[in-house]
């Protein structure tokens, strides 16, 4: 169970998150929707421990999520060594894991359909392949909590479907999945619960995302807060 409570975060004088709370149960796929700069990525970074929160707590199964060993994530642009192959990149990071939790790199590459190209240098990969490798990194340790920030950015519809299937597969096996995306329609198809983040606060929450028009709700929130293009 992921429990995020009253998270505050500021960068200098800019208050990015103002008391954000959310919950995600095992086997649940939770969507986080919001405009650019509303604080989605910051929240996800805090959950995985890449950024410290000013206030508030993030716990996963009773343990601080930032230090939990059961977390896999895909946040922002992938950062891999361009002169190494996809396999070498994942293997190097896998070698940083303790021996008893060493991830299965081959399994992850097969899952994302990169087995054929695993020995090619990362710099020769297309944008979609880079995203797939990033996804493989997130899942290679078979995590119980999967955090995905804009996983569908820059990938073709076939890969989107493949990713959605993989996410569903993880959730079925009992993993908690938290996804942020601009693609509301894509997200709506796979989530069990959705939050809309606007200007650092949770502006909307639903446990029945299939029964509401999330796009219309989001449009309405943006119009009310004036957070659209200015």
């Amino acid at each position: 169970m992921l429990q995020v409570q009253d998270i505050h975060k500021s960068y200098g004088k800019n208050l990015v998150l103002k008391g954000v709370s959310l919950e995600a149960a095992p086997g649940q796929v939770v969507g986080l929707i919001g405009a650019n700069g509303c604080g989605k990525s910051t929240l996800l970074k805090i959950i995985v421990g890449l950024a410290p929160a000013d206030e508030g707590t993030c716990q996963f199964n009773g343990q601080e999520s930032a230090t939990s060993t059961e977390v896999g994530f895909m946040i922002e642009e992938p950062s891999f060594y361009p002169n190494l192959s996809g396999y070498e990149n994942l293997s190097l990071i896998a070698s940083l894991f303790p021996p008893d939790r060493r991830p299965d790199v081959d399994w992850a590459l097969e899952k994302v359909g990169l087995s054929e190209r695993k020995k090619d240098k990362y710099r020769t990969y297309s944008l979609g392949m880079k995203q797939r490798l990033h996804f493989a990194l997130a899942i290679m340790s078979k995590p119980s909590l999967l955090i995905l920030d804009e996983p569908f950015n820059g990938i073709d519809p076939v890969t989107v479907i493949a990713f959605e299937e993989l996410i569903g597969e993880f959730a079925k096996q009992g993993a908690t999945v938290l996804i942020s995306s601009h693609g509301i329609r894509e997200l709506q198809a796979i989530v069990d619960k959705a939050y809309i983040l606007d200007s650092g606060v949770i502006a909307y929450k639903t446990d029945k995302p299939h029964e509401v028009d999330l796009f219309a709700v989001f449009k309405d929130i943006v119009a009310r807060s004036g957070a659209g293009l200015r």
């Binding site: 890449l50 994530f73 922002e76 642009e77 950062s79 891999f80 990071i93 940083l96 990194l137 340790s141």
Partner: peptide, 15 residues
């Protein structure tokens, strides 16, 4: 600068 550090966190090493 290139964010490689971010990926090392997958192993759950501390900052």
């Amino acid at each position: 600068a290139s964010g490689y550090c971010r990926e090392y966190f997958h192993s759950r090493l501390s900052r």
